[in-house]
Amino acid sequence: MTATTPAAVIDIIEPPKPIGQQIVEFCRRNTTVVFGSILLLSMVIIAIFAPFFAPGDPLALAPARRLRPPSETYWFGTDMFGRDVFTRTIYGTRISLIVGISVSFLSTLIGLVIGMLSGYVRMVDAIVMRIMDGLMAIPGILLAIAMMALTKASVENVVIAITIPEIPRVVRLVRGVVLQIREQPYIEAAQSIGTRFHRILIKHILPNIMAPLIVQATYICAAAVLIEAGLSFLGAGTPPNIPSWGNIMAEGRTFFQIAFWIILFPGLFLSVTVLAINLLGDGLRDALDPRLARRM
């Protein structure tokens, strides 16, 4: 402290630390975030550079070499058609991450807009919330089967089928935060200084929603990856010509007793990915909202 009189207010302004040092400090304090992001990042790299990690063709059939156990040539073994499980698992990462990320992005975006309007404009609220209750009652699996029956199996349909039941969760979260914030005196203050409606939403309410929303997005991402695998396993998800973890496991299910590797390796990848996303979400929640961390 510099020389200040006791009555003087503390007005020492600390020079901002260099950004590198800030990042190091953040990482030291939030190890789960770091661990989760490293795991997730490696998954993303695997997905993007799949042809580099697994040079073979994930669809190439080789009936002569079927159901081979893991070896030097076939790290994760081969399935009942002689396809390389390693190659297929690596390519499956793409589908899982695409589905996870698009579902969490779409549902948070749509949920954010609906939730903010519903929380701030009372007229909209009653109607919107009843629709959301209705949406919440639709099971994702049934919706996916219905969509497959109506159109054809595709990754886009899977994304839509998982997104729709997730939207109400985001809407409820956002609406709750908006309802809490709109009663704050600083919103009244913003009105009294002539702040326009859309600016109040964007400048005063939105920044306060971001922290819980980001956390919710990571959970949705993890859930979407799991649901996608589940849907594919049931045959209501990704079409069977695209290797996804769920598909691989579904096909290997019947050979489980003689060729465990077909199910084991995609299952491991699935678990690690979901773990990584959840770790990231938990860590972010603690870092962004200390109050929530203490409550846990």
Binding site: Q184, P185, Y186, E188, A189, A190, S192, I193, G194, T195, R196, R199, K203, H204, P207, N208
Partner: peptide, 27 residues
Amino acid sequence: QVIFQDPYSSLNPRMSAGDIVGEPMYN
């Protein structure tokens, strides 16, 4: 204009002091 009772909750915690005071001029 109005001055509120609670000096804690009447200022948006996520805006800098300069932005808070400058906002009416922007509006």
